[in-house]
C-alpha cells in the first residue's frame, strides 16, 4: 500500500501525459481512477471501463474468437478489478494490468467459446461482424476463420503469447508482464505457437 502511495505521489509530480512502458509508473488519469476505485467510488469503475474496454474487448475477441465469450470475459475482468487492485502496485499501466487479469480469467472461457463456435459451425450460423458485401471481404473472412481455427489448436499459454506478441504486437517484455512470466518464456511460447501454426498451414495446404 505504501509502495502504491509512493507511486501516486510520484505520478502527481509527472506530466499528465506520462507514457507507461516496462517499469514505468501509472499515467495520471489511471492513478486517479484507481485511487477512487480503491476508495469505493463506483463511478470510477465506469470511467475505467470507458477508457480501456476497447483494447480489452479486442484482445478478448482475438484470443477467444467468439464475441459472446469475449463480452463475458470483459465483464468478468471489470467486475474483478476492484478486488484485483489490492495486488496492484502501480508498476505497470492499468491497461497492462487489465490484460493480465483477462489472461487469468481467460481459461474458463476458452472452452466455452470453442464449444459455442463448434455448435454454430454445425448449423452454419457463424456470426459475422458485418455483412459480406464483396469478394475481398469474403477472402478476408476466410483468412480470419482459418487463423481462428489454427489458434484453437494451440495450447492456451502459447495461444495467449501468440495473440499478445504477433496479433496485438506487444513487445516481449510487455507480453511477459501480462502473462506474469519471464520475457524469455513469452518469446519461447510465441515462437512455438508460430512454428505450430506454420506446420499446420502447410499440412492443411
Amino acid at each position: 500500500m505504501s509502495r502504491l502511495l509512493h507511486s501516486f505521489e510520484a505520478v502527481d509530480a509527472l506530466a499528465p501525459e506520462a507514457v507507461a512502458g516496462p517499469g514505468a509508473v501509472l499515467p495520471h488519469a489511471d492513478a486517479g481512477h484507481t485511487a477512487r476505485l480503491r476508495a469505493g467510488e463506483s463511478a470510477a469503475l465506469g470511467e475505467i471501463y470507458d477508457l480501456h474496454h476497447g483494447d480489452l474487448r479486442r484482445f478478448a475477441v482475438r484470443l477467444l474468437g467468439d464475441g459472446v465469450a469475449a463480452e463475458d470475459l470483459v465483464h468478468d475482468v471489470f467486475l474483478a478489478l476492484p478486488r484485483a487492485l489490492r495486488g496492484f502496485r502501480g508498476d505497470c499501466t492499468l491497461r497492462t494490468f487489465l490484460m493480465s487479469v483477462a489472461v487469468n480469467h481467460a481459461r474458463k472461457y476458452v472452452r466455452a467459446a470453442g464449444r459455442r463456435r463448434n455448435a454454430l459451425a454445425r448449423y452454419a450460423e457463424l456470426p459475422t461482424a458485418r455483412p459480406l458485401t464483396a469478394d475481398v471481404d469474403a477472402e478476408r473472412r476466410q483468412a480470419v476463420e482459418t487463423l481462428r481455427i489454427g489458434l484453437e489448436r494451440l495450447p492456451l499459454q502459447q495461444r495467449i503469447a501468440f495473440v499478445l506478441c504477433e496479433v496485438e504486437q506487444h513487445s516481449a517484455a510487455e507480453a511477459a508482464r501480462i502473462m506474469d512470466v519471464p520475457e524469455a518464456t513469452a518469446r519461447t511460447r510465441a515462437f512455438h505457437a508460430r512454428r505450430k501454426l506454420r506446420q499446420w498451414l502447410e499440412e492443411r495446404a
Binding site: 479486442r58 475477441v61 461482424a129 458485418r130 478476408r140 480470419v144 487463423l147 481462428r148 504477433e166 496479433v167
Partner: peptide, 11 residues
C-alpha cells in the same frame, strides 16, 4: 492470415 486477423474489426 495475421494481417487479415489484425484488420478484422471488433464489433
Amino acid at each position: 492470415l495475421l494481417a487479415a486477423y489484425r484488420a478484422e474489426p471488433v464489433d
